[in-house]
């Protein structure tokens, strides 16, 4: 498989130290580690939200560390999707408009709103929230809101989806539902890199990177043949071995 994201010798403010790894197309990778290990900081650097002190980050053949802020913004808009723990959305827009926001910017004047809207509704339909299109963000549950965030992240058909603790603010059953959506997206071909604290969430990923004190301490791939329970147990054992 071809690499979609390649990180080489990345350093940032002493929090990240000489980090190198890669993510292949269609892969779903989890980054785990204790609080303060640098997980979120790593995500901000590889997605171009922040600029690393040194090292290289290649996404889909483009080295983003050398790009200007505006160029990185364009790249995020067209090739990346984001899902945050806090489900950040514009409070003055309804769910549909929030989902359409990145699309209306990227396709300004090129694609009619109707077409974008039907794309958004299809995504919402898949996530089971189509009926909530006109609701304000304060009128839906946390799980529904996080699904809407996933729809927003997918509206521009990104090459890679970054998720920062996407189930951190959800209860267990909602978290499972949301993770099912991530798995489905991955199976449909979306590459995903997510930061998580939850070993059950990580167990659904193809590969887990363990971060400690700003360095990657280990890597684990639960084999595909195992059942869900066995995968979770295997991940827990591995994490225990890493000192989790």
């Amino acid at each position: 498989m071809e690499e979609l994201l390649t990180v080489k010798k990345l350093c940032k403010d002493g929090i990240l130290k000489d980090i190198s790894f890669d993510v292949k197309i269609r892969e779903m990778v989890a980054i785990m580690g204790p609080s303060g290990s640098g997980k979120s900081t790593l995500l901000y650097q590889v997605s171009g939200m922040d600029r690393a002190d040194s090292g290289e980050v290649w996404i889909d053949g483009t080295e983003i560390c050398a790009l200007s802020e505006d160029e990185r913004a364009k790249l995020r808009l067209s090739r990346m999707g984001f899902v945050f723990q806090q489900m950040n959305m514009l409070k003055n827009l309804n769910l549909l408009d929030n989902i359409l926001l990145p699309a209306s910017r990227l396709n300004r004047g090129k694609v009619p709103r109707k077409e974008l809207e039907s794309r958004a509704r299809r995504l919402m339909g898949k996530m089971g929230i189509e009926a909530l299109a006109q609701r304000r963000i304060t009128e839906v549950s946390g799980g529904q809101l996080q699904r809407a965030c996933i729809c927003r992240s997918m509206i521009n058909q990104p090459k890679i989806l970054f998720a920062d603790e996407p189930t951190g603010a959800l209860n267990q059953s909602t978290a499972q539902e949301v993770m099912a959506e991530f798995t489905r997206l991955n199976q449909e071909g979306t590459t995903i890199l997510m930061v998580t604290h939850d070993s059950k969430v990580a167990a659904k990923c193809g590969r887990i990177l363990y971060l400690l004190d700003g360095r990657i301490q280990g890597e684990f791939s639960p084999t595909g043949a195992m059942g869900e329970k066995e995968r979770e147990a295997a991940v827990s054992r591995w994490l225990a071995g890493m000192g989790w």
Binding site: D70, A73, R76, L77, M80, F82, Q86, R105
Partner: peptide
């Protein structure tokens, strides 16, 4: 602040 951060994160240009 958080909304501005989100808009930046999803790639909205600063001018926008």
């Amino acid at each position: 602040q958080k909304e501005i951060g989100m808009l930046k994160a999803i790639g909205m240009p600063k001018e926008e």
